[in-house]
Design a protein around this nucleic acid. Structure first.
Lengths: 245, 245
DNA sequence: GTGTTTATATTGTGATCACAAATTTCTCGC
DNA sequence: GCGAGAAATTTGTGATCACAATATAAACAC
């Protein structure tokens, strides 16, 4: 019956998810023609990206299968994909869990993000119409609202949407896949950083990015995204890497 | 009986593999304790990286299973992993194949390599002992020998070993995983570039890199790796992207 | 109580069967 | 000969069973 097990020392505090969670529990099938493993993959991916699975939490195939209302088979394939993307980790014990964050891993993620994401934003630049920029700004409004309402999951979703709405415009699926893999690796730790983000937002780099888009200033766009990454990751680092570990 | 099928227009020329190939066909089990899917993964990964599977070639689960002497089950998991790494592509037809190279993908790979690999080399820098550098130089000798002997597969293996012997010293598994995913995507196309590489080696950037390692010149190491990537990818680009496609 | 050993339950892995979709092959009409 | 259509084959996907390894629970000794 028990399917989530806490083994990570830093995640013992109560962080109830069922309260306001919008994660689908039954029938991950979005379309009739999409295979079950794909539906499971998307559901699992959402949980990882938006705080549905806590770091250190063990994931079992049968548990997830029962939880999602499918047989263990498609779960196996979905979990395999996420393991390959370093979103999940298969230990020697054969246990599957969300890998903990380390100082080294954190630093590598930060470097990779700064190496790839500003470039994606700049590449997307010419593809933006005025309406596209309005849509981006609407997403940014969602972020502010979620932050004001204390909606952690809503904040994470909107923040993801903001970045990837820009990146997807770059029409660079190969680079985008790398970035998505990276997001899956720090996604579970964003929740921990939310508290600090809400309290002190010194500079809204998202607005700087939107302004740069409107102005047509690629250099400013690049540095706005870079600064946003630096700030966001700093929050995560402060929240997660408090102990030398 | 037929398990390899050519559908890529640029790969219709005969490139026999069975002649001098060292790919294991039976019993991919390296150790008794390693799961079968892991053995299949490594075998398949080797084939992709070192020219064992031609671009556009369709891969079938049952065919590979028979080929490797295992049941289709572990093949499914191994193929899933490679699909997740963008090394293989699962089409809408449910066909699994080595995705073709496009001009856009090629350019993204080049950018990602230059963004990540020189950094890995620099990070590895301090970890090198004199003996380590000698080992790197020995690998470079293997490259020269393979090139002189016309040993395509040997060249590819040695070239891979050269780069990753350096990168692994960086102790940055998160970045290394990204780079490995990238290599899996252009690996199948290296074979096509071999001919040009053999004919005109203007500058040996590997030797520059080794010299930089000995000298302790990080900037020179970074630019040597960067130049090697640029040169190697240029060969691949010239060989693969001849037609506008 | 506490540490150690035994027994039970749970887990990932692999094999086999069934099925629908797609491909290939064969057949027939012209 | 040569396409068009039907039959047969092959494909990935999913479900179910079996098994060894691990982890959890229980029992026991002291």
């Amino acid at each position: 019956m028990k399917r989530l097990e806490i083994s990570h020392p830093a995640s013992t505090e109560a962080t109830p998810l069922a309260k306001t969670s919008t994660f689908v529990s039954a029938s991950p099938s979005t379309s009739p023609n999409v295979p079950a493993n794909e539906g499971v993959y998307r559901a699992l991916r959402e949980r990882i990206l938006f705080g549905g699975i806590r770091p250190g939490a063990a994931v079992t195939l049968r548990g997830l299968a029962e939880d999602l209302g499918v047989s263990p088979m498609p779960v196996r394939e979905a979990v395999r994909r996420l393991i390959a993307a370093s979103a999940l980790d298969l230990q020697d014990n054969r246990r599957v869990l969300v890998p903990p964050m380390t100082r080294e891993k954190f630093e590598q993620i930060l470097f990779a993000r700064r190496a790839l994401e500003p470039e994606l934003a700049v590449r997307a630049f010419t593809a933006f119409s005025a309406a596209d920029i309005d849509a981006i700004e609407a997403i940014d409004t969602r972020i502010d609202k979620a932050m004001k309402d204390g909606d952690v999951e809503g904040y994470m979703r909107a923040n993801y949407d903001f970045h990837f709405a820009i990146y997807e415009k770059a029409q660079a699926p190969t680079l985008l896949a790398l970035v998505e893999s990276i997001w899956l690796q720090f996604g579970p730790f964003m929740r921990m950083a939310y508290g600090r983000i809400g309290t002190s937002v010194l500079e809204d780099h998202h607005e700087f990015a939107i302004a740069a888009l409107r102005r047509g200033d690629t250099a400013a766009l690049r540095s706005a995204i870079d600064a946003d990454i630096g700030q966001g990751m700093a929050y995560i680092g402060d929240a997660v890497l408090v102990q030398p570990q």
